[in-house]
Amino acid sequence: MVVEEKAIIETENLTKVYKGQVAVDHVTFKVFEGEVFGFLGPNGAGKTTLILMLLGLTEPTEGMARVLGVDPVREAIKVKGLIGYMPENMGFYNDLDAIQMLKFMADLNGLPRHIADERIEKALYTVGLENEAKKKIGAYSRGMRQRLGLAELIVKEPKVAFLDEPTLGLDPDATNKMIELIENLSKEQRMTIILCSHFLEMVQKLCSRMRIIIKGKMVAQGTMETLAKEKFGVDSEEYTLEEIYMKYFQEEA
């Protein structure tokens, strides 16, 4: 399933020192086209900082990064056009409705009106918000807001999408819907997805490969099988990702 040919994201010794503290410590990795890549790690491990560096929102202290061959430091605008970003705490303009919000974002991306309108209609339908499209976002539930965030990605149609805790605080039903939608993004839209989450069940289900970051350092990387083999010396069938993760975490801490 994984098409391992072209590296879409490449980093080398990427480091960020923030107010004297090392947030990201010499991280080197590659993400290939079409895969769903999972970032695991405790709170404050530097996952968000890493994403911000790849987006060109924060400058790395050291090392280099390439997103689709573009340097996010030098050509931040170009990179931002290629990447879709769904942050942990999604901010919306609460006095706009869903269509106005999506239109504003489409305008910022310079999409022509007729293409934007078409995509917005399709996106709202895909995430199941077509009946709430004229409601003010302030009246939305958390699940609806997260789905609207995904709709934004569908409108933008980026090559790569960063999803930061997309299921945080959602009820089980909304979580399942979210997982379905992310799967849909990956399979039907052929989007490369980088997923940060503590919801390990979802990561296990969606991600082909994953990486564990603790205290800014990358401690492990690979498929479920390689991670399990490294720690337990057996096939992953017997262990869930949660058990593997806890093993790594206890060793590091």
């Binding site: 170009k78 931002k80 056009g81 942050p87 901010g91 910022l108």
Partner: peptide, 17 residues
């Protein structure tokens, strides 16, 4: 206000200066 509501980082993640 935009910073506190989290909309600033989202606008800046779009391709604008």
């Amino acid at each position: 206000r935009e910073r506190n509501e989290g909309t600033l980082s989202r606008i800046l993640a779009q391709p604008i200066y």
